[in-house]
């Protein structure tokens, strides 16, 4: 899922400075699970903003809502009526949600309340780690189900580099060396021979490097 974290509250307050009445919109999907932008977080953030603005002698009215999802146009309807009454929306969905809000409610500013961080999962309660870089060209079948693009600091396809020590990456002892993990897993699977093969230069065209991406499925189009 998409992992995000809340922007610094100072930054949010700065964005909202010109407004007296806003909609604070959470999202019921990924950011609810990673506890950055769900219904609970909407409540806490709304209170914080109100308290801060009250203290500054410049109160703000905040309507709170949480959409089923902010990443699909049909769910935008859930915010339609509420948007009539406000000057702007602070979305605490991922960047997709913020953009869909902006696109749908074209005449009112949509502000991001989160930083969309990465694609990953909660490794333990309160600890989220990256797993996928959405490169558009999966190699997990070659690398023991561990992604070197997302998890190696250098995205090496023929790793590990010389900086791998005691299972950790050279950039930090808190970062696992993806290639150590790959080696261990392939060893456990009895597939170490995979690693003797040179993986050729990657076709990054399917990644962000090929420009904004788009998939058209004629079979699904109406």
């Amino acid at each position: 899922m998409i992992i995000a974290e809340q922007k610094p509250i100072e930054e949010i307050l700065e964005m909202l400075a010109p407004h007296k009445k806003i909609l604070l919109a959470g999202c019921g999907a990924c950011v609810t699970v990673c506890q950055a932008g769900g219904e609970k977080e909407v409540g806490v953030l709304a209170s914080q903003i109100r308290v801060a603005r009250q203290e500054a002698g410049n109160p703000i009215e905040i309507i709170e809502t949480t959409l089923t999802r902010q990443c699909e146009p049909e769910f935008m309807d859930e915010a339609k009526d509420l948007m009539n009454d406000v000057e702007a929306v602070l979305s605490i969905a991922c960047g997709i949600g913020v953009q869909l809000m902006a696109q749908t409610f074209y005449d009112k500013p949509a502000y991001p309340g989160l930083n969309t961080s990465f694609l990953g999962f909660p490794e333990e309660h309160g600890v989220f780690t990256e797993r996928c870089a959405a490169c558009g060209n999966c190699v997990l079948h070659l690398t023991g189900g561990i992604c070197p693009i997302a998890r190696c600091s250098k995205s090496l396809l023929n790793g590990p580099c010389g900086g791998s020590q005691d299972g950790k990456c050279e950039i930090s002892k808190d970062v696992d060396c993806a290639w150590q993990l790959i080696y261990d897993r392939l060893k456990a699977l009895g597939k170490l021979e995979n690693l003797a093969e040179i993986i050729p230069p990657k076709k990054w065209i399917t990644s962000r490097d090929g420009g904004p991406r788009k998939i058209v499925r004629e079979d699904l189009r109406i």
Binding site: K154, S155, L156, L157, N158, G159, C161, I198, I199, P200, P201, K202, W204
Partner: peptide, 8 residues
């Protein structure tokens, strides 16, 4: 960048 790795 790491478009290529050292082996590539």
């Amino acid at each position: 960048v790491y478009d290529l790795d050292s082996i590539q």
